[in-house]
């Protein structure tokens, strides 16, 4: 367990699999000692990232894979969602002012905005047709500056 702290799930790119992905990620986050509120944030962020893959990466091809990797470190949980689809420009769908955006009754891009709001760090690496990744980090205790806590004291703190 100590030498391997990454959990992997490869699953076909279909909306019906979102639930399995959420369960997978939630169980790991919960066991690691995150609060229910944080578990909720993590599973929603991962759902949004995977929904984007299902909706946009493969033009509806439900045979193609989504890879979800969850890595547990002493101070953080890192989730990497990878696809081999057509990719996108994260800057092009960035919402700078949510109130203004909503006033226009637009919808696309809300997922990406949510991921940014829910996670402590978010990074995209896009290589269309080769490997597109979104890497999301959640720190225990919410802040990277906090001193590391053991899993037991993490639980006690929540």
């Amino acid at each position: 367990m100590e030498q391997e702290n990454t959990y992997r799930l490869r699953i076909p790119s279909r909306t019906e699999n979102l639930e399995i992905i959420r369960e997978f990620v939630s169980k790991i986050a919960r066991n690691a000692g995150f609060s229910e509120e944080d578990v909720g944030k993590i599973q929603l962020a991962v759902d949004e990232a995977c929904t984007n893959v299902v909706k946009h990466a493969y033009d509806g091809d439900t045979q193609k894979p989504i890879d979800v990797a969850v890595r547990l470190d002493y101070d953080r949980l890192t989730i990497v969602v990878t696809d081999e689809g057509k990719g996108f420009d994260p800057k092009a769908v960035e919402i700078s002012d949510i109130a203004e955006y909503l006033a226009e009754l637009r919808v696309g891009g809300l997922g990406i905005y949510l991921i940014r709001s829910l996670m402590d760090e978010v990074e995209y690496s896009i290589q269309p047709g080769v490997r597109n990744q979104v890497r999301m980090v959640k720190y225990f205790g919410g802040s990277p500056e906090r001193p590391p806590l053991s899993p037991r004291s993490r639980r006690a703190q929540k």
């Binding site: 979102l18 959420r22 929603l44 759902d47 949004e48 929904t51 909503l102 009754l105 637009r106 919808v107 809300l110 997922g111 949510l114």
Partner: peptide, 16 residues
């Protein structure tokens, strides 16, 4: 029990 932006988007689609 749960909502994602896909669910929120449905309301946006009809409000107008």
């Amino acid at each position: 029990s749960y909502i994602s932006s896909a669910g929120l988007g449905v309301f946006m689609g009809f409000i107008e």
